[in-house]
């Protein structure tokens, strides 16, 4: 699973951080940092994070081995 965030859209709302704190965080300056290839076990959290993004800037892609 690959997480892609459109940083042109992201406005640092931080809703993804509540949904998937192991994948998304806001740094000290309040800007988004994230894990781009999180463990498959976190899929539900990541999909929830993509759902709650007000800007709909998060995409979850399947990685083909």
């Amino acid at each position: 699973m690959k997480v892609v965030v459109d940083m042109n859209k992201c406005q640092d709302h931080g809703q993804c951080v509540f949904a998937a704190p192991d994948v998304f965080q806001l740094d000290d300056a309040g800007h988004l940092v994230f894990v781009s290839e999180p463990d498959e076990a976190l899929r539900t959290d990541v999909e929830d994070a993509a759902d709650v993004c007000p800007l709909q800037a998060i995409r979850v892609e399947d990685t083909t081995p």
Binding site: D12, V17, F18, L26, G30
Partner: peptide, 12 residues
């Protein structure tokens, strides 16, 4: 500003 939203999140 965006800092205010982060402050609010601390009370969540």
């Amino acid at each position: 500003g965006r800092g205010a939203a982060a402050l609010a999140a601390r009370h969540r």
